[in-house]
């Protein structure tokens, strides 16, 4: 695993406001929207399109319909809102089916990726802090 830099906020230390938004960058380094696009289509990373349709990502096959389309998400939400949604959407949408991408504890029978085996003691979050920032940067480009 990549060692977390000192400036990075650990999953347990992220602060959501009353609406679930996370104002501060997790890394202090601006997100890379192109990398965010890759993360969103990669099955082993965000795999966001498993549930969401995103017109800007139509080059990647198979967009699901479990969640709403993300077209225009950058208009509907602020950067802080989107960071809150990607970090832990349950802070924004109570009980949502959408997974929390920057959380590493509090699971029932957490596994080690898709092996079906038990998770290691130091289970990393699904996305790294910088990957979250990259995804948020990409979402901000989704303007109507």
């Amino acid at each position: 695993a990549i060692a977390a830099s000192a400036a990075e906020t650990a999953p347990d230390n992220v602060t959501h406001d009353d609406y679930g938004s996370v104002a501060e960058s997790l890394t202090g380094t601006a997100g890379d929207a192109a990398s965010g696009a890759t993360i969103m289509t990669d099955r082993g990373l965000g795999n966001c399109i498993a549930c969401h349709e995103v017109s800007a990502l139509k080059d990647a096959p198979w967009h699901g319909e479990v969640g709403p389309t993300l077209d225009g998400a950058g208009d509907r939400w602020t950067e802080a809102d989107l960071r809150g949604i990607v970090v832990n959407s349950k802070m924004v949408f109570d009980g949502t089916i959408m997974p929390a991408y920057y959380k590493n504890s509090g699971f029932v029978r957490a596994g080690d990726l898709y092996t079906g085996k038990a998770a290691p003691a130091d289970l990393p979050p699904i996305l790294t802090a910088q990957q979250v920032e990259d995804v948020v940067a990409f979402l901000m480009t989704l303007q109507d």
Binding site: F107, V108, R109, A110, G111, D112, L113, Y114, T115, G116, K117, A118, A119, I126
Partner: peptide, 9 residues
């Protein structure tokens, strides 16, 4: 199906 939730089956 349980494995696909990133769980210990």
């Amino acid at each position: 199906c349980v494995r696909d939730t990133r769980a210990e089956t």
